[in-house]
Design a protein around this nucleic acid. Structure first.
Lengths: 158, 158
DNA sequence: CAATAGTCCATAGATTTGGTGGGGTACGCC
DNA sequence: GGCGTACCCCACCAAATCTATGGACTATTG
């Protein structure tokens, strides 16, 4: 699951990536532009900064900015910082592995096997995608066959 | 995220798929064999039954069994029944779509775009995989380059 | 030194997850 | 037609996680 924290973080990164080179933005600006609670965004940007993805400057005229060009920032990295491992289940994570208490032998677990396959597919997308690609919006014409349904559907098939 | 509920459910399905044709198993048996709390498994199997994946028989000599051959049961279906939509975020679900309250226009959202791609990758795997394939264990030799690390790693890179 | 804006810590409500308890109900079997 | 088995259903609960909020502190600029 991508939590609100992760989502807010990605939105903030997009916001910052759109800045002119050298420019910085206040937390309050970013929060306002993206409908994010300012205080919550505070902690999110801080984590991204501690992870080396953002840099910050205090005081008047301060603010946040990307620490690297958008083309060098991988979406998967940001998500891991904010939401943890990409794997759907911990025992399927390649580097944040943790054994399930109900599994005698993780190597023999079918669930783990399948979820590892899923993890790899997710990682293949998100560790390849850079912030630069992420920001490059293919306009509203990008997804033509992906209509948004009227209201929430009963069956959970998504 | 695959919750314990989803995981337990999948394990139970594997258990049932290994039964001889026509044979049934008690909830208590399945629970015991897979280290699953009996009562919790009760509710899980019930949901799978209500979804048409399992059939059950009451009374002595009763129990649970697959309602269809394992080759006709799709893993993605079972997971959706137990854990909900496969998409990492609701607004990226194709049929259980729900708009985020912080997004003015879902069509223009970069996060949604990327997560839809992830959703499709997940669905491609899980909606293709049948219980039959899922159960077919390629022994311990199946994944050779997938060593299980000693203990939990600090960095969350999974 | 005063205003600004990031940093840090503590806390708290809401929701989800994971699980328990108890009773009801259909069924097979003496 | 009881009796026990084992599924069915309801309510409830504890713990964890998510989603914030409040307030104090610190560094910087003018």
């Amino acid at each position: 699951m991508l939590t609100k924290k992760g989502k807010y973080g990605l939105k903030a990164l997009v916001d910052l990536a759109r800045l002119a080179p050298g420019e910085t933005a206040f937390v309050s600006e970013i929060a306002l532009r993206n409908n994010i609670p300012k205080k919550f965004l505070d902690t999110i940007l801080l984590e991204l900064r501690n992870a080396g993805i953002l840099r910050s400057k205090k005081g008047p005229g301060g603010g946040y900015a990307l620490s690297q060009p958008a083309s060098a920032i991988r979406i998967g990295h940001a998500i891991r910082v904010l939401d943890g491992p990409l794997a759907p289940i911990r025992c399927a994570s390649r580097t944040a592995f943790e054994a399930c208490d109900d599994c005698a032998d993780p190597q023999a677990c079918q669930v783990r096997r399948a979820m590892t396959e899923v993890r790899d597919a997710i990682a293949a997308i998100l560790d390849t995608m850079t912030l630069e690609q992420f920001v490059a919006a293919p306009g509203a014409a990008g997804i033509v066959d992906d209509e948004v349904p009227e209201k929430k559907v009963v069956g959970r098939t998504g």
